[in-house]
């Protein structure tokens, strides 16, 4: 699971959960897999994501150093190549291989095995 995917995931599917976001990451194993850096792509992508959540996720995994410590990125950050490179690494290169995602409201855990988050739910949980 890449952190861009984590940024989109919620546990709002579960009964009585109001926002279910962001899911807490408990990583047992994470890896860095190199991907081509595309500044335009990152600059546009960053507008679509929740930066605060991305920062927290990176911090949990020990990769936040070098990221702007802010809630929302400003124009200057988005034009800074070094920042974009860092965001590229955090969004697309870090992969959580083993661990789980935890619903912030109910504590329900969704396992991550072989890099695939298992978000399957039972009908009783809805």
């Amino acid at each position: 699971m890449k952190l861009i995917t984590h940024n989109m995931l919620t546990s709002k599917i579960l009964k009585n959960v109001v926002t279910g976001y962001p899911l807490k990451i408990h990583a047992v194993k994470a890896e860095l897999k190199k991907a081509d850096f595309q500044p335009d792509f990152i600059a546009r992508m960053i507008k679509k994501i929740d930066y605060k959540t991305l920062y927290q996720a990176a911090e949990t995994l020990g990769y936040a150093e070098g990221m702007p410590k802010t809630e929302i990125l400003n124009e200057e950050d988005m034009n800074n190549e070094e920042t974009l490179k860092k965001l590229h690494e955090v969004l697309l290169e870090i992969e959580v291989i083993e661990g789980d995602l935890e619903c912030p409201e109910t504590g329900r855990k969704f396992p991550i095995n072989n890099g695939i988050p298992n978000m399957l739910v039972n009908e009783e949980e809805l």
Partner: peptide
């Protein structure tokens, strides 16, 4: 394969239920 960035998850859907993703993305 690095030309297209992809990721995978396992999720299911029931009647009137939701996928585990945020709105409008």
């Amino acid at each position: 394969s690095e030309n297209l960035i992809s990721d995978f998850i396992c999720s299911n859907l029931f009647k009137n239920s939701k996928f585990p993703f945020k709105d409008d993305i």
